[in-house]
Simulated assay, not measured.
Amino acid sequence: MRPFLVILSLTLVGVVIGIMSDRFAFNEAGEGKAIILFWTLYNLVTLVVTLLVCIELPRVEHHFGDRPERTLISVGGKLTRVWLTDITQETARIRGVDLSPGTEIVINIRKIGEVQAYVLEKTSDGARLSLELDPQQYDALLRRLYSEGDVPSVTKTRVGALARDAIGRLMST
């Protein structure tokens, strides 16, 4: 971003010096002054747009590993409270229980409901599960993963706040 700020500053200084001082007015450009002024202004606009593109705030995402959630599983009719540490479209990872591969369980996942699952592999602190989702549960899982919470997406834009933050970021660099 700094190189673009330097080029923008030098261009602005050149325009101001050309307007305020006769020291660099050699009058040799003739009719070409309008073309030079046009490309100078075009350069300024392009540099401003380039600087705006350079401003991007860090994205905030929710990771299950950062804040696992409590859930219940049923193994052979016995309820056990475990930690859900990761979930994808096809698998989940749980902590706090010792299960062997191939074990059939039912896991209660928030906003999805009770899901049939099988243990794919045993981990040091729990297990990795294969989820058997019906179409409604699959749709609910996709909504939960990609359209709710702190996903890095844009739902609305406040132009005033965007402009204020962009100017603040420009001033702080």
Rank of each mutant, 00 (worst) to 15 (best):
R2N: 11
P3V: 00
V6F: 10
S9I: 08
S9A: 03
L12N: 07
G14T: 09
I17T: 08
I19T: 07
M20T: 13
R23T: 14
F24S: 05
F24R: 01
N27A: 06
A29D: 07
G30K: 04
G32S: 15
K33E: 11
A34F: 06
I35D: 07
I35N: 03
I36C: 05
W39A: 01
W39Q: 05
T40P: 02
L41D: 07
N43S: 11
V49E: 06
I55E: 13
E56Y: 03
E56A: 04
L57H: 14
V60E: 15
H63V: 00
E69S: 13
I73W: 13
S74R: 14
L79I: 10
T80Y: 05
R81H: 03
R81F: 02
V82K: 10
T85D: 15
T85K: 10
Q89L: 07
T91F: 04
G96K: 09
V97I: 14
D98F: 00
S100W: 05
P101L: 00
P101H: 01
T103C: 01
T103V: 06
I105C: 00
I107T: 08
K111R: 12
E114G: 02
A117F: 09
A117L: 08
L120E: 12
L120S: 04
E121V: 10
K122V: 00
S124C: 00
S124K: 11
S124A: 11
A127T: 11
R128T: 12
L131F: 05
L133H: 09
Q136N: 07
S147P: 03
E148T: 14
E148W: 06
V151Y: 07
T155I: 02
T157C: 04
T157Y: 06
V159S: 10
V159D: 10
V159H: 11
A161Q: 09
L162G: 02
A163M: 14
D165E: 15
S172Y: 11
T173R: 14
